[in-house]
């Protein structure tokens, strides 16, 4: 089997250049590629376009890359909870494209699946639909949306093997599987790396064909945005 193992995040991301387009998995802070984000901070790469459902918080996740002004454009569905983001947006330093969450997910899925366009009802009659082709199917209007692809996709999984097969845990799956397929180079970081043959093929969520590099992550913080308990 092909071995895709790299030693760490710094090596995994070392050919990401200025002005690259990146996809970063996660919903809020759940299932984000923490190690790759730290490595990008260290590398100092600039001018990034980041496609990610959210933009982190001020001091964690993509929010860290905003603090260092490494991001010039975000493509997201929801970007609350981030004061530095707001400041950069209002001052014009940061460009933001907001998309309905399902449209974002499907555009990424389409990118990975080789479907350049599709019609969706989300956003018809709203500012999201401005300038987009509208077509009527069975009496209802739909918007034409196009695929999204990235130079690099940075995904986070629970378990992975040396051939790049991935298994996610809980709701940390979210955008990670579609992003894995939509990146020219997909880098997976995992909490538990195992040899090929150790994962049950029946349970694999992302087949290794989509993953070019994989490494054992470390020091996961897994911050919780809304810690909510019964007690």
């Amino acid at each position: 089997m092909i071995n895709k193992l790299v030693a760490n995040a710094d090596i995994a991301i070392n050919d990401i250049r200025d002005r690259s387009t990146l996809m970063l998995g996660g919903f809020g802070l759940c299932g984000i590629p923490e190690n790759c984000i730290t490595a990008l901070l260290k590398s100092g790469v600039k001018g990034l376009t980041c496609i990610s459902n959210n933009a982190g918080v001020d001091d964690f996740g993509i929010g860290l890359l905003l603090q260092t002004r490494q991001v010039v454009k975000m493509i997201s569905s929801y970007v609350g909870e981030n004061a530095e983001f707001e400041r950069q947006l209002l001052s014009g330093e940061l460009e933001v494209e907001l998309l309905p969450q399902g449209t974002l997910a499907e555009r990424i899925r389409a990118g990975g699946a080789g479907i350049p366009g599709f019609y969706t009802p989300a956003g018809v009659g709203t500012e999201v639909g401005a300038g987009k082709e509208v077509r009527n199917f069975n009496g209802k209007d739909y918007l034409l949306e196009s695929w999204l692809r990235a130079d690099f996709s940075l995904v986070k999984a629970w378990k992975g093997d040396t051939t790049g097969n991935l298994i996610y845990k809980g709701t940390a799956r979210n955008f990670n599987p579609m992003m894995a397929a939509a990146g020219k180079i997909t880098i997976a970081e995992v909490e538990e790396l195992v040899p090929a043959g150790s994962l049950d093929p029946n349970q694999v969520h992302t087949p290794g064909i989509y993953v070019q590099r994989i490494f054992q992550g470390s020091n996961y913080e897994k911050r919780i945005e809304q810690y909510t308990t019964l007690d």
Partner: peptide, 25 residues
């Protein structure tokens, strides 16, 4: 509490018997 299990409001939640998990698409 499991940081890998949240709702759309980013609150920590639990699963019930018969729950299922899937991706955003």
């Amino acid at each position: 509490v499991d940081p890998d299990l949240i709702n759309a409001g980013k609150q920590t939640v639990t699963m019930l018997n018969g729950s299922s998990l899937f991706n955003s698409a």
